[in-house]
Design a protein around this nucleic acid. Structure first.
Lengths: 199, 199
DNA sequence: GTCTATATTTCGATAGAC
DNA sequence: GTCTATCGAAATATAGAC
């Protein structure tokens, strides 16, 4: 039987890891991978930079961990939409609702995934995974748009263009949320966003 | 009378500066200020890194020059909208058209301005200028929306929310254009974008 | 005007004390 | 588990030759 102390230590370790990840997410989203120094993360997480290396072997590993998490979340939304009951429009609305929730609760994750797609210091394998999730999500969206057009619930027009517009909105909103400090904005409603697709 | 050679040299200098700025804009937009090395810029501009320093005193100066340019362009659109003839809707449409042109022709500029608002290695004065242009543009947009709602040309709803949604779209589209390499997308039409504001 | 070689700084990463 | 001190690589910026 392990000594009583061990689980207490485990809890501390988990806490520390979370604190690092939380601080890093905000910084990565705002400043990018390269501009974020380990010292910044350590300061934001209120610990020495040496301790960060005790929990993660490198800055890239912190970043990768965040990307993996974000991709898992994104994947659930992408694949969940088709499984939802209801008409194509209702499925689209469900998907949009989940995305807007994500944008408001963890806007940093959107930025982090975006950076994962482009940064060259990120492992090629992970970048590939991010790009695939992006394509996958885009395809799902296009399918739903096409289905919705057949039922007359979605506005006519090239589904690819509509998908681009829609995703640009979502990504742009995540961006606005990430940087909402100085410019005071008010977040749009789901209905306002859905009007892009309304007939 | 100055020797004939001088104007030729001047032309070379201008060319070189332009080449550096053009290369830097693409790189800054894609990778960010910190992740873009002087060596990268030099390579993209097809010259030695020493020569870059001959034309600009630092990497930040290259960046600042681009931001100034972008802000000048943005300012013209912002202030030009109210001067356009026609109804509020027509003014909004003119503004949107200019922005979408900008997004397609120089998507990098949008990214560069965005980075200028947040990067801490950029002179505080310039960052302030970027933030002010952002606010200014936002106010102009809100005013046009309000005017349009009075004439019934614009959908009802909180103008601040609509402005956020609209700008998020524009910024998101600029982002899509900047990174349009791997994910093949098709650019939406102005009418599709304007539907956000249609009654 | 342009290049190569070098000095200087910064930052990621490690080692060792507590 | 946590910190401080330190190493070494990488990148900015400069100097001097062509």
């Amino acid at each position: 039987m392990p000594p009583r102390k061990e689980e207490e230590n485990q809890r501390i370790r988990d806490d520390r890891r979370e604190k690092i990840l939380e601080a890093a997410a905000k910084l990565f989203a705002r400043k990018g991978l390269a501009a974020t120094k380990i010292a910044d993360i350590a300061a934001a997480a209120d610990m020495s930079h040496g301790l960060v290396y005790h929990y993660f072997s490198s800055k890239e590993e912190v970043f990768s961990t965040l990307v993996e998490r974000a991709l898992d979340g994104a994947s659930m939304v992408t694949h969940g939409a088709h499984l939802q009951p209801g008409t194509p429009w209702e499925q689209l609305r469900w998907m949009t609702a989940r995305m807007l929730e994500g944008v408001r609760q963890q806007p940093e994750y959107f930025q982090v995934v975006l950076q994962a797609m482009t940064s060259d210091t990120v492992p090629a394998e992970l970048r590939e995974k991010a790009l695939q999730e992006g394509e996958s999500s885009r395809r799902a969206m296009i399918q739903l748009i096409e289905a919705g057009q057949k039922t007359g619930e979605v506005v006519a027009g090239d589904p690819s263009q509509l998908a681009t517009l829609f995703y640009s909105c979502i990504q742009g909103l995540a961006l606005s949320e990430t940087f909402k400090g100085p410019l005071e904005m008010t977040f749009p409603t789901i209905d306002q966003v859905m009007r892009i697709l309304e007939p």
